[in-house]
Design a protein around this nucleic acid. Structure first.
Lengths: 140, 140
DNA sequence: CTGTGTGCAAACTCTTTGCATAAGT
DNA sequence: ACTTATGCAAAGAGTTTGCACACAG
């Protein structure tokens, strides 16, 4: 299984034009092992260490940015101090819990959007993000 | 005009339960003078200085957060290092230019969203943000 | 072998905080 | 007067960068 993941990740990396170094293969394997997910740099770093992969935080930053440019993953449109990456590149959406800075996947995925505007000249739509911002119920 | 803006801002602040101090009144006046807009802390700070209002950066930070809690403005869901605030509280949406970290208003405002999921228990929807991420056209 | 990637630590940016001073009611 | 807000500078978090060493092709 592990070998399989490694092989798949290597192929993905080559396709993306990235040299399949140990660290990149390891990080890609972690990312894709668990299906669609969103995580921060620190989370992936910790996972890597837990898995016995000695990789520096800076490398995780660099690698995730390389993966993003290679369109293997993408950045989530949530404000806040930390950057969230998402392994699901297709259009899908998120809850964002205000105050807690927490991102949740939206379970059902049949949200549809109508009357999307045309992008300005020379630009193309990379992705449409719907973020449903939540707050704890109050009687305020 | 200026007196008018000041008076309006004072009223808004009182309503929100915030003491209408010089700085808050000035910043609120700047915010609302130009209609709907989105800006960063630094941008507002600069505007204030240009307008002859001596206010510290820390105060702009604090004030914008207070305004946000008071629901006079809101935070935009765009990732990136800086936080964007928006004086338009109603549902409306944005383009985000990748790479340039630029936020643009979507001119027409008839985007509609269907099949919104129910929020989790104990939570309510604060706001729905649609961010259309743009990138410069390439033949990659 | 040659060039690209990695690790470390230091630098950077944006943001928050503590405390003395100033302003609002 | 009493309380809350402001300004400053320093601290803090997250992220990026420069350079020597290591690894992939």
């Amino acid at each position: 299984m592990v070998m399989e993941a490694k092989t798949t990740s290597e192929a993905k990396l080559r396709e993306a034009g990235l040299r399949p170094t140990r660290q990149r293969v390891a990080l890609a394997s972690l990312l894709y092992a668990k299906g669609d997910r969103h995580l921060t740099v620190e989370e992936l770093h910790e996972e890597a260490l837990d898995a016995g992969i000695n990789v520096s935080l800076a490398t995780v930053y660099n690698t995730l940015h390389q993966f993003t440019e290679a369109r293997m993953i993408r950045v989530l449109a949530v404000e806040g101090s930390r950057t969230y990456f998402d392994t699901n590149i297709s259009d899908h959406h998120h809850f964002f819990v205000e105050g807690r800075n927490e991102v949740l996947d939206i379970p059902q995925n049949n949200i549809s959007i109508h009357n999307l505007p045309a992008p300005p000249e020379g630009m193309e739509i990379s992705h449409v993000d719907v973020v449903i911002r939540l707050r704890e119920k109050t009687q305020g």
